Simulated scan of single mutants.
Amino acid sequence: MKAKKNNVMTLSEFKDKYYGKPGSAKREELEAGYETFRLGALLHEARLEKGLTQEELAEKVGTTKSYISKIENGVKEVRLSTLQKIVELGLGGRIQLSIKL
C-alpha cells in the first residue's frame, strides 16, 4: 500500500510560495502588515486591561476615538512618538523595543 502524500505546509513555506522569499517586496508588505496588526492587538488588550474605552483613552492622549480604533484594527500605522504617548499617558505603561537580526 502506498503512503498518502501529505499536502500540509508550514507557515514559512506558505509565505515563500504565495508572497515570495524574505526580502521580496510582496513579502515585506505582508510582514509589515502583520506588525501593524500585532501592535493594534497589543494596544487593544492593554486598553481593556486598564478598563478604558477607546473614547476614554483618546481623551487622555488628546486624540479621537476614531484614531484609536484605526490603530487597534490595523487600519492606521502609528508613529513611535504617538505610540509612546498612548502607552505612557493613556495607559500608564512604558514601551520596550527589541531588534531581532
Rank of each mutant, 00 (worst) to 15 (best):
K2A: 08
K2Q: 05
A3Y: 07
A3N: 15
A3I: 08
K4S: 12
K5E: 08
N6D: 12
N6S: 06
V8L: 06
M9L: 13
L11G: 03
E13C: 04
F14G: 08
K15E: 12
K15C: 08
K15Q: 05
D16W: 09
D16A: 14
D16Y: 06
K17M: 14
Y18D: 06
Y18F: 02
Y18T: 05
G20C: 01
G20H: 02
K21Q: 14
K21R: 14
K21D: 14
K21G: 08
G23F: 11
S24I: 05
A25C: 15
A25K: 15
E28K: 11
E29Y: 13
E29L: 14
E29K: 12
E31I: 13
E31Y: 03
E31F: 13
A32T: 15
A32C: 14
A32S: 12
G33Q: 11
T36C: 03
T36G: 07
F37T: 07
F37Q: 10
F37C: 07
R38L: 15
G40I: 03
L42V: 11
L43I: 06
L43A: 05
L43T: 00
L43M: 02
H44M: 11
E45F: 08
R47W: 13
L48Q: 10
T53D: 02
T53K: 13
Q54M: 02
E55M: 06
E55A: 10
E56S: 05
E56Y: 07
L57D: 00
A58P: 04
E59L: 10
E59K: 09
K60V: 04
K60I: 01
V61G: 03
V61H: 01
G62T: 07
T63H: 01
T64Q: 09
T64V: 07
S66G: 14
S66L: 01
Y67L: 06
I68C: 03
I68T: 06
I68W: 00
K70Q: 10
I71E: 03
I71A: 04
E72N: 03
G74E: 00
G74R: 00
K76D: 06
V78L: 02
R79K: 13
T82E: 08
Q84L: 14
Q84I: 10
K85E: 14
I86L: 02
I86M: 05
V87G: 05
V87E: 05
V87N: 03
E88H: 10
L89Q: 14
L89W: 03
L91V: 04
G92Q: 11
G93T: 03
G93N: 04
R94C: 12
R94F: 13
I95E: 11
I95M: 03
Q96M: 09
Q96Y: 13
L97H: 04
S98R: 15
S98Q: 07
S98P: 02
I99H: 06
I99P: 05
K100P: 13
K100R: 15
L101W: 10
